[in-house]
Nucleic acid binder design. Structure first.
Length: 216
DNA sequence: GTGTGGATTATCT
DNA sequence: GATAATCCACACC
C-alpha cells in the first residue's frame, strides 16, 4: 500500500518541489468511497511574489488566493475562464505564497467514473491531460480549496520508485504569455515520454517539419 | 497532425 | 468593464 506524502515534504520552494511530484499518485476519494487516481506527469511551479505569472505577484492577497498563503501541503483550487477549476499544491512555509500547478496525470484507478465525468473525452489521455480536465475527471472543485492534503479526500501518494532525472524534461509554462520575462522561465516539468502530458514538447513538432517528404 | 475563435463567469480594477 | 495558470469544435493539411 502506497504511502501518503507527509506535510514536511511540501515545505520547500515550489520549483524544488515540482519535479519531485512527477511519478507520484494523485488520489481523490469520492463521498461514495470510490478512489479516483492517476500518476502525475506534468506540473508547473509558481514562485510567488516575484513571479509575474503567479496570482500572488507583488504580494497580492485577496480572498481567492488566500490558500496560497497557507503552509505547504494545502490545496489551492481556483476557478478560471468562467468554466474550469485548476488544482495546485501549496509549497513552502506559510506566508510564502507559492504553489505547484498539477497540469496532467495518467489515469490509474476509477477510469469508468472519469469517463462519465468527462463526456467530451475521446481517447483515454483526453480524460486528464490538462489542468481543467483532470479537475473535471476527479471531481475537484471549490469545496476542496484550502484543505490539508494529508487529511482530506484529496492527497498524494509517494512514487514507488523515484523518477530518474533523465526522464524529466522542462519548458516554459503554458498560458502565461502576459507575464513578461517570467513567461520564459522554464518552470514547467513533465515526464519526457509520457503520452498523457497536456501538449507534446515543441521540438516534436519541429521534427515533423524536418521530416523528408515521402518518396516512392 | 495544426491553427483559429467562441464559450462563460468569478474576480478584480 | 476587462481579464483569465482553459477547453472544445471546427476547418484545413
Amino acid at each position: 500500500m502506497a504511502k501518503k506524502l507527509p506535510t514536511d515534504f511540501f515545505q520547500q520552494a515550489s520549483d524544488q518541489l515540482a519535479p519531485q511530484l512527477l511519478g507520484a499518485t494523485l488520489v481523490r476519494v469520492l463521498p461514495s468511497g470510490e478512489r479516483l487516481a492517476g500518476r502525475i506527469v506534468e506540473v508547473e511551479a509558481y514562485l510567488g511574489v516575484g513571479d509575474r505569472a503567479a496570482h500572488t505577484f507583488g504580494g497580492r492577497r485577496t480572498e481567492r488566493v488566500e490558500a496560497m498563503y497557507l503552509a505547504g501541503g494545502h490545496a489551492y483550487i481556483y476557478f478560471v475562464y468562467g468554466m474550469h477549476f485548476c488544482f495546485n499544491v501549496v509549497a513552502g512555509p506559510s506566508e510564502t505564497p507559492q504553489a505547484v500547478l498539477v497540469r496532467a496525470i495518467e489515469p490509474i484507478e476509477g477510469l469508468k467514473t472519469m469517463r462519465a465525468n468527462r463526456p467530451a473525452a475521446r481517447a483515454e489521455r483526453d480524460l486528464t491531460n490538462g489542468p481543467g480536465k483532470l479537475c473535471q475527471a476527479l471531481q475537484i472543485d471549490r469545496e476542496l480549496n484550502g484543505l490539508l492534503l494529508t487529511k482530506s479526500p484529496l492527497f498524494i501518494e509517494a512514487p514507488t520508485a523515484p523518477l530518474p532525472a533523465a526522464s524529466i524534461a522542462r519548458s516554459p509554462r503554458i498560458g502565461v504569455d502576459y507575464a513578461g520575462e517570467a513567461a520564459a522561465w522554464p518552470l514547467r516539468f513533465f515526464v519526457k515520454d509520457s503520452a498523457f502530458v497536456s501538449r507534446a514538447p515543441s521540438v516534436v513538432s519541429t521534427f515533423k517539419k524536418l521530416r523528408p517528404t515521402d518518396v516512392g
